[in-house]
Write a protein that binds this DNA or RNA. Sequence first.
DNA 1: ACCTGAACACCGTTCAAGT
DNA 2: ACCTGAACACCGTTCAAGT
Lengths: 227, 227
Amino acid sequence: MSSPSSPAKPPTRTPTRGRPPKLDPDRTIATALDLLNEAGLDALTMRRLAEAMGVQAGALYRYFATKQDLLTAMAERMLADRDTAAPEGAGQGWDEELAGLARALRAALLRHRDGARVFAGTYSTGVNTLGFAEALIGTLREAGFNSGDAAQAMLAVVSFTLGHTLEEQAALSGEAPADPERLRQAVTESAFPHLTAAVPVIADADFNAHFEFGLRLLVDGLRALER
Amino acid sequence: MSSPSSPAKPPTRTPTRGRPPKLDPDRTIATALDLLNEAGLDALTMRRLAEAMGVQAGALYRYFATKQDLLTAMAERMLADRDTAAPEGAGQGWDEELAGLARALRAALLRHRDGARVFAGTYSTGVNTLGFAEALIGTLREAGFNSGDAAQAMLAVVSFTLGHTLEEQAALSGEAPADPERLRQAVTESAFPHLTAAVPVIADADFNAHFEFGLRLLVDGLRALER
DNA sequence: ACCTGAACACCGTTCAAGT
DNA sequence: ACCTGAACACCGTTCAAGT
């Protein structure tokens, strides 16, 4: 119907007409997350991101005042994958609901290379980040915990999950820094009898099992608090 | 007795004679930790460290192949402050011993600006780092836990402590990124009822209480595992 | 053996100027 | 309004050359 036969007078209705912007925040964040997956956090530079967007580096600063702001937006976006509509493990008791939320956070961080490092280095107050906290605290309060305990439990779960995933991704994505062989060698050289006995469990790098163990401790600890 | 009266022939015994090296690894690490405290991790550059050592930047690479290696040595040194001789909370039962070790790790990280970030970004296999793991695993094994549980519990305690201290230092050392006021505002703007109820506890920033709460959950969780 | 000087290949960020 | 071009003040790392 309104197909433009002659572009004499540009219609004022469609504001993206004339010169459509090459840059928009959403696509920039998406491209940055792609670049993160391909090259890692250390290689994610404003200049390389600009190149990927077909633009000069300085142009990025029209939408993000600083690289930190971009990273914060990326961290916030990472948590968007969570199923906010149907809470994980719903209708299975607060313990499984809580575990489901912790697993969802870990999964969201694992979904992107260096995801935990990005998350740890930023402080988002976006809906996804706050929504996660809301869900976790809500689960516990509705189970009868007071808001103080619920809040502190949420902080403990987030700290543990962040710390765990940080080490997990450092061990995996790292080229060589977290070499399990170097650990084995260093342990046997020094005289660490207890560590020597434990090294098969540590060096097997079964991160799922390690995460579940720590998560279980936190959940059981909360159950003990219930009386 | 053997005081050098005339330096005619440099004695082959004292190798530090002639031209004493301006650089040695120990002093370099100590200076780097000082610089870290004064300026923070982002301002800790090889060039600024070289300046503080009275040397050209390239000279640092004779003792540290890369900046990562320097940071790893710094992380290892940070844990040296721990009382390795007398384990924290010794003779008070495994639970207080474990808590003492976790508190010592947090204290060691807090002792330096961005200490948790330095620790998180490196992977040391030095005696201090391994000695800490040895002490924690030893405490649990001697209390009757099997080596698998002891190892996984150690990983959980380290992950939680690291994650917690990371957030603590980000909130404190950060110029503005972790503004509690911004959190309050963001929470009340959106509709997060549970979070609204919990925000006084979260935003009070009583990190000691938050750490002790999480630590208690882990310890109680381990007690539940004991049967 | 230990360090200097100087370079290489980058960074994040700013800002006048163009369209 | 949106982006370019170009600069500023830096980076980590390498390496011939000096002493």
